[in-house]
């Protein structure tokens, strides 16, 4: 969002550059998700970050938590079935709680009482998703209460975009790990990518996350950009049968 007092000086490019440079500080041998969480803590006024995935409506698993407090926050929520991160999963939208002591008990009483012994001032939970495809969530906490400002929020959303790339790359083995290192993909997909995904859902009769994985896999296998392949599919220049193999 553009605001006259804050965030205006920080353009899209600045945010991208900062995220890129934070990631480059880490060794490429380290798991991409660990690097993404570290970059998150380095760039933002937060004390911990985690990435969780869900498969089906029941199974939820934290892939990485940067510290014990964050790990505890996630596990309490998954056990109790409530909490801001849990809600971000379910509602498929960010849940930002700038003052957990003030707002937590009213919204999530069991969660709030269970973590009362932890020093957690604020929690920010972002779903990792693309339309109807819900992959997981990235959660952050800070010891002191307080909301992220516009510039910090832009960085947080970028980091979440990157977590999505890291997860999809890890699960499909299509070489996106290299992308995380080079940071090329920090742009969001265009409408054609979503439309082509929809066409593949119908053509292949598979769930949306699989259709998107097929699209990406085909683009990677033929050495082309996903959005170029998508554009050809949508304009009916590329037959969907070519992607079946």
């Amino acid at each position: 969002m553009s605001e006259p007092d804050e965030g205006m000086g920080r353009s899209d490019d600045d945010v991208r550059a900062a995220v890129v440079s934070a990631l480059r500080r880490e060794s490429p041998d380290i798991d991409p998700l660990v690097r993404v969480c570290r970059a998150c803590v380095a760039l933002l006024p937060v004390d911990g970050a985690s990435v969780s995935v869900m498969s089906g409506s029941q199974h939820r698993e934290t892939l990485h938590a940067s510290d014990a407090v964050m790990a505890r926050l996630d596990s309490v929520q998954f056990t109790m079935g409530e909490g801001p991160c849990f809600e971000a999963f379910d509602e498929r939208r960010p849940v930002l709680v700038p003052d957990l002591a003030r707002d937590g008990a009213g919204s999530w009483p069991a969660f709030a009482s269970e973590i009362a012994d932890q020093q957690v001032g604020a929690v920010f939970a972002f779903p990792i998703q693309s339309g109807a495809i819900t992959i997981g969530a990235m959660d952050m906490y800070r010891r002191e209460p307080g909301l992220l400002n516009a510039g910090e929020l832009a960085t947080a959303l970028r980091v979440v975009d990157l977590a999505a790339v890291a997860i999809v790359g890890a699960s499909s083995g299509d070489g996106t790990d290299a992308d995380v290192r080079d940071l090329a993909p920090l742009r969001r997909d265009r409408a054609e990518v979503h439309q082509a995904t929809g066409m593949l859902i119908s053509h292949l009769g598979v769930p949306p996350e699989l259709a998107l994985a097929r699209l990406r896999g085909y683009a990677f296998g033929t050495g082309r950009l996903v959005e170029d392949v998508a554009r050809e599919i949508v304009s009916r220049r590329l037959r969907l049968e070519s992607i079946d193999i």
């Binding site: 939208r93 960010p94 998703q129 979503h194 439309q195 929809g198 859902i201």
Partner: peptide, 19 residues
């Protein structure tokens, strides 16, 4: 963010229906 993600879902559904 909710509005933007809904828009993506709509694009996916348009593609699905179009096919």
């Amino acid at each position: 963010q909710d509005a933007l993600n809904n828009r993506i879902t709509i694009e996916q559904a348009k593609g699905l229906l179009s096919h």
